[in-house]
Amino acid sequence: MDTQIDKLLSNGPKVVNIGLHSFFEAAKAQGIPTVHIKWEPPAQGNQELLHLLNELL
């Protein structure tokens, strides 16, 4: 019986890319079925703004 890894190796991956858009572009350029989800750290990771958002949102 084929394991998950056997299936991956024989059928190729399907990618859900989260975050870096360049990874999405690279996978797409190789013909890999890929969807992209836009994500980045809240407030671009700025600690001062994150503190404000914790109080206000």
């Binding site: 001062e48 703004l49 404000l52 958002l53 109080e55 206000l56």
Partner: peptide
């Protein structure tokens, strides 16, 4: 603007 909002209301 968010910083100013924090200064005024927090």
């Amino acid at each position: 603007a968010l910083r100013a909002f924090g200064v005024k209301y927090l």
